[in-house]
Design a protein around this nucleic acid. Structure first.
Length: 432
DNA sequence: TCTGGGGTCCTAGGACCC
DNA sequence: TCTGGGGTCCTAGGACCC
């Protein structure tokens, strides 16, 4: 059996933690650059605000319903997420079993095979109560025989909080049937917009219950091969998507951003790409990896002076490194010429990004006969750099290629304070 | 005027090997 | 002039996730 613990409206809950006046009020949190709405409190959902809607389209509604709006504050969410996950590990892990898989910033799967069926409901309730007690973040818990079914359970727990008290355990066939009959295929974990359309329009399959009864071979042919096969099995209570090892490293690392406002000059794009490269290299070193490929891309939309349509175009450049590296200087030196060859004068640039791939452990770096090496020297330098930036503040020390003016920096006009990670932004209860 | 960021997995097809 | 069979590895692209 699997449990999934999912924080309720996670980003909004984080903001409310330091703004008790906003309890029971509509709250939304925006994506980077204050572009879209990515988290909504229940009150905001009821007010009719859509997930993923661009801010400018919702302005009217936000004003009418007096919705509190926040820019995203990843320092805060990251730190609170860590507290939630630590709490779950304290409750679920023991010396022998590592049962918790952190699935995303606000979700974790827990393997509960060792619990007798009768203990599942009380265990779920305990998770719910202790997490909110220790961290202030409310969560919903779903438990079922497979990951897909546990997500179904969780969704129901969340949707009808009154009735479920945020806990739903599917521990017999009857409960599973009820849950699946009440679930639209489009709401299944693993069925996205494309497959949902296909299932409904082409095959007349509308509920999870209908999908569960489709033959395996049909799913192999029509639902993404092995992916579809697993979906059917999981719906039938046969677990195929196992708990992941928490020590696994990432296979690619990307840093990409929209610019705060459109950018036209090569110089500015190069500064942005140098900055993103430095950030990506930092993430790379944090997991002790080195990269063998580096991709740079830019997105532009139209030419200056021409009529506006939103048809962004992507340009990519790929580079195979002679020797895997995690050295910021070397990665920037590689990235900048790639930017130059992508640049078209007069185009209006919206976004750029850097993707590091072919990641290998950096303690087992393969030597290259033709590349000269001063790896040790650079590694010490990078470590010093990371230490300074970690203990002081981000970007305390940076590469000159990253620029100083930073016209392209993203907008975050409504960000709350980083209450839990910065001394100078601590929550103030009383002045003097 | 304004539309996020960072990942994963799978498959098909080409290059290359003996 | 004739030119196989069975593999592996890599990449691009598609689909999905939060």
């Amino acid at each position: 059996m699997f449990a999934i613990v999912d924080c309720n409206s996670f980003y909004c809950s984080c903001e409310r933690l330091f703004r008790p006046d906003l309890h029971n009020k509509p709250v939304v949190v925006l994506s980077n650059n204050d572009g879209c709405i990515v988290s909504r409190s229940d009150e905001a959902k009821r007010a009719g605000i859509d997930m993923g809607a661009p801010l400018f389209e919702s302005r009217q509604l936000i004003k009418e319903k007096q919705v509190a709006v926040f820019s995203s504050n990843y320092h805060l969410y990251g730190n609170l997420s860590m507290r939630v996950m630590d709490t779950l590990r304290a409750l679920a892990d023991d010396e022998v079993h590592r049962c918790v898989e952190v699935y995303s910033v606000d979700e974790a799967f827990i393997n509960v095979d060792h619990l007798p069926v009768g203990h599942l409901q009380p265990f779920a309730e305990k998770l719910r109560d202790v997490v909110v007690g220790w961290t202030g973040i409310p969560v919903s818990v779903g438990i079922a025989p497979s990951k897909v079914l546990s997500k179904v359970a969780n969704r129901i727990a969340k949707k009808d909080k009154q009735k479920t008290q945020c806990v739903m355990v599917l521990d017999n066939d009857e409960k599973v049937q009820q849950a699946l009959m009440a679930t639209d295929v489009a709401d299944l974990w693993g069925i996205g917009r494309r497959y949902a359309r296909k299932l409904k329009d082409l095959y007349g399959i509308n509920t999870a219950w209908q999908l569960k009864h489709m033959p395996i071979e049909w799913a192999r042919k029509n639902l993404g091969g092995i992916v579809g096969v697993r979906m059917i099995k999981e719906l039938n209570g046969e677990s195929c998507i196992l708990l992941k090892n928490p020590l696994e490293k990432k296979k690619m690392i990307a840093t990409t951003r929209m610019f705060g406002k459109p950018v036209f000059t090569l110089q500015e794009i190069k500064e942005a790409v140098a900055t993103y490269t430095a950030r990506a290299a930092e993430k790379l070193r944090r997991q002790n990896s080195a990269a063998t490929t580096l991709d740079v891309f830019v997105v532009y939309n139209g030419i200056e002076g021409q009529p506006y349509t939103y048809e962004p175009k992507h340009l990519y450049n790929h580079f195979l490194l002679l020797k895997p590296t995690s050295d910021t200087a070397q990665l920037i030196k590689t990235a900048l010429p790639l930017v130059e060859s992508l640049y078209r004068k007069g185009a209006k640039y919206l976004k750029a990004g850097v993707v590091l791939g072919g990641l290998v452990p950096d303690d087992a770096l393969q030597g290259n006969l033709f590349a000269t090496s001063n790896v040790h020297q650079n590694r010490a330098l990078m470590q010093a750099l990371d230490n300074i930036n970690f203990s002081m503040r981000d970007d305390m020390v940076k590469f000159a290629a990253s620029g100083l003016s930073r016209n392209w920096k993203m907008r975050q006009e409504m960000r709350s304070k980083r209450f839990t990670t910065r001394w100078d932004e601590l929550y103030l209860i009383k002045d003097k």
